[in-house]
Design a protein around this nucleic acid. Sequence first.
DNA 1: ACCGAAGTTAGAACGGATTCTAGTAAGTGT
DNA 2: ACACTTACTAGAATCCGTTCTAACTTCGGT
Lengths: 201, 201
Amino acid sequence: MEAVQDLPPGTAPGLRTKSQLQRRRRILQAAAALASRGGVEAMQMRTVAERAGVALGTLYRYFPSKMDLVVAVVGEELDMLESSIARRPPAALTPDGRAVDVLMRATRGLMREPELADALIRALILADVELPFGDRMAGLLLRVAGLSEAAADEEQAVLAASLGAVWVQELLEMLRGRRTYEDIQRRIEIAASRLLADFPA
Amino acid sequence: MEAVQDLPPGTAPGLRTKSQLQRRRRILQAAAALASRGGVEAMQMRTVAERAGVALGTLYRYFPSKMDLVVAVVGEELDMLESSIARRPPAALTPDGRAVDVLMRATRGLMREPELADALIRALILADVELPFGDRMAGLLLRVAGLSEAAADEEQAVLAASLGAVWVQELLEMLRGRRTYEDIQRRIEIAASRLLADFPA
DNA sequence: ACCGAAGTTAGAACGGATTCTAGTAAGTGT
DNA sequence: ACACTTACTAGAATCCGTTCTAACTTCGGT
């Protein structure tokens, strides 16, 4: 449930050799592939290890718990979202419009692999991890709202984080089958228009 | 992970005899006691059964999964919050002030048993359950904000639910040790003042 | 008071995450 | 090249949620 990436494979440092980087990549890829089939259940540690071609013990050396593995997979998804946004930035004219744009783009991305999304979101919420979804998503929202993270005052940071929280909950409701894409859009728009109302255009 | 309380012990109906009600009570009490020690981990099904003086199989007849058990425990906590609010309604003059009052009262209640709170919140977020926290809390917020649930239009319902979502996330951050009580209060106030701004006084 | 259905019990059994062990391979410094 | 620390492997072992089994009890109807 915890365990900080200390020595072995911190996202950046700690990987000495090329083969270790490749092992890590293979593991993440196997994990994502399995999860996008049957969700967390299908993503069994033994299966991941087998499919990645490493021993179970090695898998646990790279990712001390299943949660750590899930978190790493999510990290990759977020990387993809961020680069997608860099490539094609939200075009809306208001800060809240841009925020909604980004959130709905993320929603569509996650909807494409519902099992994966379900597994990832839930795991994230559970994780004791530092800087999981919340913070990264809030930072992203601040940026698309037009503020560098450094320039935001506390109130703005709180509001951006709040919008992130609302989105996460809506996503969860969607995964439970209680929201459609359109529901989410409407609800996020309502919340965003209030929360980001007085952000500088 | 699912299983609706169908025949055996629905919160209200289905319990025929007095001894069944008492069994249910003993189980819930044992579960809460264990969870308020070591959290979910300490609340092992075998241990709960033992401490409640029932067989493991019986425990599973009453609560088809650990999650169902957790949800039931949370339900009781929410009952207590609601009756506390009925006894001493929030006194603030504005709708958002009253909402903050209720949320912070709930926060204090949960802080008293952090392990329990942690277990419960996380489990709830994960649960596939109908009408768990979110809805009940949102309804409660609507009511203290001064609207009967029936009278609220969709926008108001969304805003109340959003505030509930923000609160849940803040609670999670607190349980992760990343927020103090004062942090939460400040942040909830900020979010509430935006989200409930134009509610009728 | 008696019967069958439903509820309970003790305990074994199963599945998947995590841990542990002993031995083998790879990488580093001298 | 040699010694040594570190990484990896195969597999057994442990822990806990959940399921299953067979026998025992309790309850409602007669």
